[in-house]
């Protein structure tokens, strides 16, 4: 769609595939994946913290890998599989085991970083980086929690990894 003809465009018509559903939108080339999710698709579960790739609040999965949505242009994400926190629950609305683990372990206070923490944790577990608490801390370090619920977050990741 965007490939091949090498036409440089300022206004782009593209399709974002989010949580298994295709959305056709028209946007300025500057719009990030984060802003496209929140402002164009109404998926506000993905949070906008620092908007510089420093806090991890905007973590989503792109083709199955965790990334900072604020560091990806929406145009660059077109045609790829995008999963957000809204896409974790199953068809019946049952929450994901990682979400349940965060509830069980009380792994948040204000909750602002939680969607990013949970998306990161799902990937961290899938990658197998949960063999020790130290490894969990290292591979979860891209998600900042200003309430400092870190011990509970590590416990939640450990619990979900063991499920």
């Amino acid at each position: 769609m965007l490939t091949g003809r090498m036409k440089f465009r300022e206004q782009l018509d593209l399709t974002l595939k989010v949580n298994g559903r295709e959305h056709s939108i028209s946007l300025d080339a500057r719009v990030t994946l984060l802003d496209a999710l929140r402002e164009y698709l109404g998926l506000t579960g993905t949070k906008k913290g620092c908007n510089f790739g420093e806090c991890g609040a905007c973590t989503v999965h792109l083709d199955g890998r965790r990334v900072n949505a604020c560091l990806v242009l929406a145009a660059a994400a077109a045609g790829r599989e995008i999963t957000t926190i809204e896409g974790l629950a199953d068809e019946k609305g049952m929450q994901h085991p990682v979400q349940q683990a965060f509830v069980d372990q009380d792994a948040f206070q204000c909750g602002f970083c939680s969607p990013g923490q949970i998306m990161s944790a799902v990937a961290c577990i899938a990658e197998g980086h949960t063999r020790s608490d130290a490894e969990i801390r290292e591979w979860m370090s891209g998600n900042i929690c200003r309430c400092a619920a870190y011990p509970q977050i590590v416990a939640a990741v450990r619990q979900a990894a063991g499920d």
């Binding site: 091949g4 090498m6 440089f8 465009r9 300022e10 782009l12 080339a29 500057r30 242009l73």
Partner: peptide, 19 residues
């Protein structure tokens, strides 16, 4: 952020010419 235009390159020669 100032405005810009966006395109995807499919082959290296195309990217080098545009770059």
């Amino acid at each position: 952020m100032q405005g810009f235009t966006y395109a995807r390159a499919a082959v290296v020669s195309e990217a080098l010419a545009a770059g």
